[in-house]
């Protein structure tokens, strides 16, 4: 996109902001102002609240009447044996979701892209992205029913002779992460393909025509044209998603989890809800939030740096 005829002068002048440049870009600056205000109000201003994590915050007292406790809440967080367990669960489930959702979304997008019958393509697309609009409370209800001993999964496996007696899927620790990953795919795959399909439609058709003339088959075209064509989109989405790694979600684990799988189902958010907000320990909840943010920003910067190193698109 950066154009082929980039001369040295232009690149250099990019880094120096002069009045002239500002004038030229005044429309852009004007357009970005509201967003900037939005970010300052809703992202930077609340960071003032991080101070709470060093206090024993009590609601309705003024700032100066709060008691300062130093790193007490961070200490509680890092010394609780459950914390490392929930940290592990959060990160593992995030990675599983990341891999599952990227593979499935790109796979489905590739397949849809090959379909020439518009009606069939649209139908598949609509059906696959409808679950996106369901809330997790409904999705987990469906999942719980499907996986119960009288649910369809057990029925089918037993009819096929693969099982002799029904399995209670949700009571086995080893299945839980997989169930969460698959549920995510079912709910979000259609929605996630949209952006890849958009990226694919932006690929120059000349490339395909040239490949046709060179005698490339379908798979070769996919591999050599379509996939490289969406690579930049893929990298940017990946970097952004790595920033969300500490957020494995809350609802699905909270609603599907139970005592038998608690060692694998509890995420940081659930832990914080139970031991923080649920007990009016706002300072402790903030401390956990600070920790999550710091880790997220570090991961984001790391991913960005790696992308830069290997010469790919990047955000910052």
């Amino acid at each position: 996109m950066a154009g082929f005829s980039s001369n040295q002068k232009l690149i250099k002048s990019r880094n120096i902001i002069t009045l002239d440049v500002l004038k030229k870009q005044k429309q852009l600056i004007f357009m970005s102002a509201p967003l900037l205000v939005y970010i300052i109000i809703f992202a930077y201003a609340p960071m003032w609240g991080w101070i709470m994590s060093f206090q024993d915050y009590k609601p309705a007292k003024s700032f100066f009447d709060q008691q300062w406790v130093g790193f007490k809440h961070f200490e509680f967080l890092f010394t609780d044996p459950v914390f490392f367990n929930v940290l592990r669960n959060t990160i593992c489930m995030s990675i599983i979701n990341l891999v599952f959702s990227f593979v499935s979304a790109i796979g489905l997008a590739l397949l849809l892209n090959e379909i020439k019958n518009i009606f069939f393509k649209r139908t598949v697309q609509i059906i696959s992205y409808l679950p996106h609009f369901l809330s997790w409370i409904i999705v987990t209800g469906i999942v719980a029913n499907v996986l119960s001993t009288q649910g369809i999964i057990n029925e089918v496996l037993m009819k096929m002779g693969l099982l002799t007696e029904p399995v209670t899927w949700l009571s086995e620790e080893k299945y839980f992460w997989g169930i969460v990953g698959v549920s995510h795919v079912w709910k979000e795959v259609g929605w996630n393909t949209i952006i890849y399909l958009a990226a694919m439609s932006a690929i120059d058709p000349c490339l395909y025509e040239a490949a046709n003339i060179d005698g490339a088959n379908r798979y070769q075209k996919m591999w050599h044209i379509t996939l490289p064509g969406i690579k930049s989109t893929f990298i940017i989405l990946l970097i952004m998603n790595i920033g969300w790694l500490m957020n494995a979600g809350f609802e699905i684990q909270y609603l599907l989890g139970n005592g038998l799988v608690i060692d694998y189902s509890q995420t940081i958010d659930i832990f914080v809800l139970k031991y923080g907000i649920g007990m009016g320990r706002f300072s402790f909840a903030t401390a956990a939030g600070v920790f999550k943010s710091v880790v997220s920003i570090t991961l984001l910067l790391l991913a960005n740096a790696v992308a830069k190193r290997v010469g790919e698109e990047r955000i910052i």
């Binding site: 009571s171 139970n258 005592g259 038998l260 608690i262 060692d263 139970k274 031991y275 649920g278 007990m279 009016g280 320990r281 402790f284």
Partner: peptide, 25 residues
């Protein structure tokens, strides 16, 4: 709110929810 007693109570509940089903099954 947020007292040691309340934290202990939550931990006892978590333990019950986790172990009692295992014990029964």
């Amino acid at each position: 709110e947020g007292s040691d007693a309340q934290i202990a109570n939550q931990q006892m509940q978590d333990l019950g929810v986790k172990y009692l089903p295992r014990i029964i099954l």
